[in-house]
């Protein structure tokens, strides 16, 4: 058992290892509580393996996903953003995923116009029974992001802005 004293002066995240020697992809996944989160749980209970660079932020439904979350994530250094929810017709809240898809479609067009690399934003449907699909998606997405490298263009873009 270990216990550390409270240290309010230390900055957030102190205690993390010192600067890693090589770059690692940073992927943020906004996933819904009912389908994809449970699907990712299933990948765990089935002991499937995938690269450890994805950070999951649970939302109740993809309908809760605000495209600005994605912008914020990129701002904070994400190299890729995944949004994943229930399959069409399977939404726990009947229609949240349709709204998410609509929002995404419109927002995608806007970001493309602004020159955003949309290969870094993935949208998928993964059900509670599709642990394998979750693993495949994370593997493929990680590969793509690794190939593309750090998202420098975004940094350049907001520097210009």
């Amino acid at each position: 058992m270990s216990e550390s004293p409270q240290s309010e002066t230390q900055k957030d995240g102190a205690g993390l290892p010192e600067a890693a020697t090589s770059w690692e992809p940073r992927i943020v996944a906004f996933i819904c509580n009912w389908c994809t989160y449970t699907g990712a749980d299933l990948a765990g209970t089935s002991r499937m393996k995938y690269p450890p660079y994805v950070r999951v932020i649970k939302i109740p439904c993809t309908g809760r996903f605000d495209p600005l979350f994605m912008i914020k994530a990129f701002e904070r250094g994400a190299d890729g953003v995944l949004v994943s929810g229930c399959h069409p017709g399977d939404c726990h809240y009947t229609a949240g995923n349709y709204n998410a898809r609509r929002k995404y479609t419109v927002f995608k067009a806007l970001l493309e116009t602004l020159g955003m690399d949309m290969d870094r934003v993935w949208f998928s449907w993964i059900s509670a029974s599709e642990g394998g699909k979750w693993v495949d998606t994370i593997r493929k997405f990680t590969e793509v992001i690794q190939e593309k490298g750090p998202f420098r263009e975004y940094r350049e873009m907001i520097d210009v802005g």
Binding site: K11, G13, E18, A19, R26, A73, G77
Partner: peptide, 8 residues
């Protein structure tokens, strides 16, 4: 999201 910033 903010907490995700790579520290270190």
């Amino acid at each position: 999201i903010n907490s995700l910033m790579a520290v270190g």
